[in-house]
Simulated scan of single mutants.
Amino acid sequence: MKRLPLLAIALGVGGLVPFLACAVGILLFSGQVPAPRLVLAMIDYGAVILSFLGAVHWGLALAGDPLGTPIAAGAVTHRLTLSVLPALVGWAALLIPLVASPVLALAVLLLGFLLTTLVEARASRVGLIPPGYMALRWLLTAVVMLCLAAAILARL
């Protein structure tokens, strides 16, 4: 299994800092003024990162098969189409607090991260994901989902 570049790992782990900071702040200030703002900050950051995850697959679809085997045009179309779904889920999460509880937006993001990672795991099994990527993705997704779940529970 090919190792990911150390910088990719460091940046991935560093990307957890806003999730962790928001979750800790929401838990510490649960009944105070900063908590609702931190929830919105977490929603905003989660939407951005979810969009980034979709963009990864957009790039991989355009780059072709990492193993060098030709990809059918239909598979590229399917992959490009799926790659925009995380951004749409993130956008929906951004809109939800305008009309409903921000807790619902957190739940939508949690589901979006889980489903995106499950789709990536399936793509990995058929060789459409670079080796080593899924180990990092599962770790990052687990931490993100724990932060989102903690925020949901703190706001219920």
Rank of each mutant, 00 (worst) to 15 (best):
120 E>N: 04
97 P>M: 06
140 L>V: 12
69 T>E: 15
74 G>E: 14
107 A>T: 11
3 R>I: 01
7 L>C: 00
140 L>R: 08
40 L>R: 10
116 T>N: 12
134 M>H: 03
83 S>V: 03
127 G>P: 13
73 A>Q: 15
4 L>V: 05
2 K>N: 14
18 P>C: 06
103 V>S: 10
22 C>V: 04
143 V>T: 05
122 R>F: 07
129 I>C: 07
55 A>S: 15
48 V>W: 13
80 L>F: 07
98 L>V: 00
22 C>G: 06
51 S>H: 09
136 L>I: 08
96 I>V: 13
141 T>N: 01
99 V>D: 06
101 S>P: 04
29 F>T: 15
122 R>Q: 10
55 A>P: 05
47 A>W: 02
55 A>T: 14
39 V>C: 13
137 R>K: 12
42 M>K: 00
121 A>I: 07
135 A>C: 00
18 P>M: 04
145 M>K: 01
19 F>A: 08
44 D>H: 09
92 A>M: 12
69 T>C: 07
105 A>L: 07
42 M>D: 01
1 M>V: 09
48 V>R: 06
24 V>C: 06
83 S>K: 02
54 G>F: 08
133 Y>F: 14
17 V>Y: 01
153 L>W: 14
1 M>P: 04
114 L>E: 12
143 V>M: 03
135 A>P: 00
99 V>E: 09
86 P>A: 10
33 V>T: 14
118 L>V: 07
46 G>W: 00
72 A>W: 05
97 P>W: 02
50 L>N: 03
72 A>Y: 04
10 A>G: 01
101 S>R: 11
139 L>T: 11
118 L>S: 03
100 A>F: 10
38 L>Y: 10
92 A>D: 04
108 V>E: 03
13 V>A: 03
127 G>R: 12
96 I>K: 00
138 W>L: 07
45 Y>I: 01
12 G>Q: 01
106 L>V: 04
124 S>G: 12
101 S>V: 05
23 A>T: 06
61 A>Y: 02
31 G>F: 10
5 P>W: 09
113 F>P: 00
90 G>C: 08
121 A>E: 10
26 I>W: 01
120 E>S: 02
90 G>V: 05
73 A>H: 13
56 V>E: 02
90 G>N: 04
94 L>Q: 13
85 L>Q: 10
2 K>Q: 14
110 L>R: 09
84 V>Q: 08
19 F>C: 05
36 P>V: 10
66 P>G: 11
151 A>R: 02
41 A>H: 12
54 G>Y: 08
124 S>W: 05
75 A>N: 14
142 A>Q: 05
41 A>M: 15
53 L>K: 02
125 R>T: 13
44 D>N: 08
8 A>M: 11
56 V>K: 03
76 V>M: 15
150 A>Y: 07
77 T>A: 15
149 A>F: 05
132 G>P: 12
111 L>S: 05
47 A>C: 11
97 P>D: 04
126 V>R: 15
8 A>P: 02
87 A>W: 06
116 T>V: 05
5 P>N: 11
134 M>E: 13
154 A>M: 05
150 A>V: 06
82 L>N: 11
152 I>H: 02
36 P>A: 13
5 P>Q: 12
127 G>T: 13
71 I>C: 05
139 L>C: 09
141 T>I: 00
58 W>L: 15
31 G>C: 09
